[in-house]
């Protein structure tokens, strides 16, 4: 079976500054993978590189053994919250329908199956009563679910989620991780850029520790260690955070 994502010797530069260096990665299907690292570690850059949105300085990225452009329908995407213009004149339905565009051709109108799929994805994230709302008139958690529904509407096999857990309430966070696990059960692969070390251990099957280079990649139990994290964050982890790591690490030791 083909791997959802393989990256060989990937290097990306922004102007002259390197953002990613010699990244190698082989990802198995059917898991939830967390990408963790400090600000400016190249987490979002990695996502964009996989989505063919950036020029690569070197390296090869394959999605299910093919180049991205040949397999775009199999990749779903959820952007970072900050990159969205919430005042844009679109409502919830419009945004979720956008997830179907990848299945359409130029000039092609959404078909009735696309409309149906859109409604079922809106239903899935429990936003049906809000379908006609402009997206700024929603709570943070609801806004988050709009983009989750859009990603679902893409019906992909590999999902790239850029900080889906940023600035949301705990109920939405729980619902989101449940949804990810459901997708995983269906054999899909979910890559999540994540910030919160305290929850990282519980959420992810594998972790990629990134700081411009791959510090470590593997099953969460093996990778999520104090030493590795200090190495990733360049010793900038405060003692407080260190304690939260220890706290979240403890239960599994026993």
């Amino acid at each position: 079976m083909s791997l959802p994502l393989t990256i060989e010797n990937l290097t990306v530069h922004y102007q002259k500054k390197p953002a990613l260096w010699g990244v190698d990665l082989k990802l198995e299907a059917g898991q939830i993978v967390g990408i963790i690292g400090p600000n400016g570690a190249g987490k979002s850059t990695l996502i964009k590189a996989v989505m063919d949105l950036l020029p690569l300085s070197s390296g090869v990225i394959k999605v299910f053994d093919k180049s991205f452009s040949k397999n775009r329908k199999r990749i779903g995407y959820m952007p970072q919250r900050e990159s969205i213009d919430w005042d844009f004149p679109v409502n919830v339905f419009d945004v979720v329908l956008m997830g179907r565009y990848g299945h359409l051709k130029w000039f092609q109108r959404p078909r009735s199956e696309d409309i149906e799929k859109t409604w079922s994805c809106i239903e899935k994230v429990k936003l049906t009563p809000f379908a006609n709302r402009q997206i700024s008139n929603l709570s943070g958690g609801q806004q988050q679910r709009v983009f989750l529904a859009r990603a679902l509407a893409q019906e992909s096999d590999l999902y790239l989620m850029d900080e889906p857990f940023a600035a949301i309430d705990s109920a939405t966070e729980t619902a989101t991780i449940e949804l990810f696990r459901e997708l995983k059960e269906q054999g899909k692969t979910i890559i999540v850029v994540h910030h919160d070390l305290a929850t990282a251990r519980r959420y992810f099957d594998s972790l990629l520790l990134l700081n411009k280079q791959v510090v470590a990649f593997g099953p969460t139990q093996e990778v999520f260690t104090g030493d590795r994290l200090q190495q990733t964050y360049g010793g900038k982890l405060t003692i407080l955070e260190d304690q939260s790591i220890a706290a979240s690490a403890e239960p599994s030791i026993g």
Binding site: D52, V90, W106, F107
Partner: peptide
């Protein structure tokens, strides 16, 4: 009218637009 969907998507989310083939 013809490029309605393409113009909407690329204005709202250029990343998804490009990765969806537009």
């Amino acid at each position: 009218v013809l490029f309605n969907k393409e113009l909407l998507l690329s204005s709202f989310d250029p990343g998804l637009s490009t990765s969806s083939g537009y």
